[in-house]
Simulated assay, not measured.
Amino acid sequence: MFRKLNIFAVFICFCELVRGECDVVTKKQWGGLQPTHVQYLPRPVDLVIIQHTATPMCTTDTACKNRVKNIQDYHMDTLNWWDIGSSFYVGGNGKVYEGPGWLHVGAHTYGYNKRSIGISFIGNYEKCDVVTKKEWGGLEPTHVQYLPRPVDLVIIQHTTTPMCTTDTACKNEVKSIQDYLMDFMDWWDIGSSFYVGGNGKVYEGPGWLHVGAHTYGYNKRSIGISFIGNYETDVPTAQQLNAVKALLRCGVENGHLTSNYHVIGAKQVLATLSPGRNLWAEIRTWPEWMDDVSSIKN
């Protein structure tokens, strides 16, 4: 509900920003780092490019400041960019946060940075039909590490927990998995990037943006998808399989996966039975399947 109510304020602030009338939270005010280099933007420009960050949405001043800081850290520390990418960022709290701003060239749209202003809405406005962590009642991670994207490897697994077939049962199962991994294993978060229930719904773990803990030695270069159940005996449903295929298509369309990504089972790179014989038999028929993993194996 808050998201729906606040979008009007965001829209008004965006319109005022374009007209040059909106109060902007300066880089100093949100605690941003100074750029390592600047290039001045010829002005006035005649092009504004709208984007989204594909990160979780923020709705409070503190959360939005932290989100912009995290984005800048990722851009500068991991991608080795001069500064945060977009000219401005718009939070769900209705405030605009300064990036390179009006004066400096940003890094938001390859080939258009030197002649446009890039405005990014903080959030993921393409859900890929995923039940978000907030929606299933998940805990926030104690730490995050950003995943370099796009990735070209998807690893399919199973949880070896009881299968779930209703929304309530699947939410509770994902909660139980997260509680076990965080409370007893002392992990930062739930392990796999996504979980798929027998109800045909996909549940967000670390998601597209963050490194998961699903396949030792491969977490920093892959997406891990776990089917809830034990597929040595359980049989994957058509709804599950279709949901994962749709998720992967969405991943390509939104730049999280390369167009030539490969799908493998966890047993191909680890000493495990996962994803279970029944799921294994299914994924081996997919066109993205990689049979010979010698070129990617650690």
Rank of each mutant, 00 (worst) to 15 (best):
T233L: 15
D183Q: 08
S259F: 07
W82G: 05
G137N: 06
L139A: 06
T285V: 11
A243S: 12
G85E: 12
H52L: 12
T159Y: 06
A281K: 06
F14V: 13
D292M: 05
K69W: 09
P141K: 00
A169E: 14
G111D: 04
F88Q: 01
V235K: 00
D61C: 02
Y216S: 07
T215H: 06
W81E: 11
G123Q: 12
G191I: 00
G255S: 01
V174K: 00
R221G: 07
I119V: 11
V96K: 00
A266Y: 08
K134N: 11
Y125I: 09
N93D: 05
L247W: 00
K65E: 14
I119Y: 04
Q145A: 04
G85K: 12
T285I: 07
L248E: 07
D234P: 03
K27L: 08
G191T: 02
G123V: 13
I283E: 00
I223L: 09
E21Y: 15
F194Q: 05
G106R: 06
G191K: 04
Y74H: 06
E288K: 02
L279R: 02
D83Y: 14
M290C: 03
C128A: 05
L33I: 06
M57G: 10
K175G: 03
R221E: 15
G137W: 04
V131Q: 14
D152Y: 08
T59K: 10
R43P: 08
Y218P: 01
G224E: 08
V293L: 04
G198M: 01
T168K: 05
G229F: 05
S86D: 15
P275G: 09
